[in-house]
Design a protein around this nucleic acid. Structure first.
Length: 280
DNA sequence: ATCCTATCCTGGCTGC
DNA sequence: TGCAGCCAGGATAGGA
């Protein structure tokens, strides 16, 4: 599923194809995808605008729009589970799962393809309040190990649900949480306020390393869903230490990996590398 | 404050 | 082979 590394990859690859392009009359095939304002307002707000800049915040791809050189709102795009962004020739046959299509000048089209329809492709007049619910960027300078250790101590939640909470830390999902916890030697049920400071710093570093390595490999693809905008799969799935590897040997110690459920999420771990402390 | 459940969706898998 | 039923999974809302 698209998490921070996949979204970063999408933003990077789509950027050169979108920046500078002028948007045409959008076709909305699934109204919910464009949010509460509805298809008519969406189409009106987008048509004629130019994409000035493409960037990422957490798991959102954001397009800054302008008209006659002046700011004219934004697109905030969330892929959720199965969303994809395609920039292709207008003549290309659209996917049956295309939910929104926006024609571009110079003969291209931006298509938001989303099998499960959970994704969002919304127009925002401003970004005021739009990202208020998000915690820090894990790869940002302001997110340092000392801060993370302090914030873990301030909560008393199980590590895995806490790390999945976008208001605590923005951008991790099911895959990279499992990977980072294994690399840090921490059990997913461990309570956040019982993680020793040194181990919290280790977790901080492993989260960053995991995300950086995944971005280098253009994210992870293990089913038919996530592809780069070029249609290529990522390759980080080959580096997985635990995700989807239940029943296989731990690459660190050889013990058979297990899959449990934590907060209604499939959770993969090594019970030797990530021992459950007597007191979770 | 934290936890739990339901909701949104559909393709793909399981079991009969 | 066919089909019904179940499930994953990010985010959010509402209840315990």
């Amino acid at each position: 599923m698209p998490e921070l590394p996949e979204v970063e990859t999408v933003a990077r690859l789509v950027r050169p194809k979108l920046e500078g392009r002028r948007l045409g009359a959008a076709i909305v095939h699934w109204p919910r995808t464009v949010g509460d304002a509805g298809p008519d307002a969406f189409t009106r707000n987008v048509e004629g605008a130019r994409v000035a800049r493409v960037w990422r915040r957490a798991k959102y791809v954001v397009c800054d729009l302008e008209r006659r050189g002046r700011p004219a709102g934004h697109l905030s795009i969330h892929l959720r589970m199965t969303g994809r962004l395609h920039v292709e020739p207008a003549a290309a046959e659209p996917s049956p799962y295309a939910r929104v299509e926006v024609p571009l000048d110079r003969g291209g089209v931006l298509r938001f393809v989303d099998v499960r329809k959970f994704g969002r492709f919304e127009y925002r007049p401003t970004l005021d309040g739009v990202f208020d619910h998000l915690g820090p960027e894990p790869l940002g300078d302001e997110w340092d190990a000392a801060r993370f250790a302090r914030e873990l101590r301030a909560r008393s939640r199980q590590l895995k649900p806490l790390l999945l909470d976008q208001s605590f830390l923005a951008g991790l999902g099911n895959i990279y949480v499992d990977e980072a916890l294994h690399r840090a030697g921490l059990h997913p049920l461990r309570r956040s306020d019982r993680v020793p400071a040194a181990r919290a710093r280790r977790l901080h570093d492993e989260i960053r390393a995991t995300l950086a390595e995944a971005i280098e490999r253009e994210g992870s693809s293990f089913d038919t869903f996530y592809r780069t905008p070029e249609g290529q799969p990522g390759s980080y799935q080959h580096q997985f230490r635990v995700y989807g590897r239940q029943g296989k040997p731990c690459r660190t110690c050889g013990r058979t990996l297990v899959k449990i459920v934590v907060g209604q999420r499939g959770t993969h771990l090594c019970t030797r590398c990530q021992p459950a402390p007597r007191l979770l």
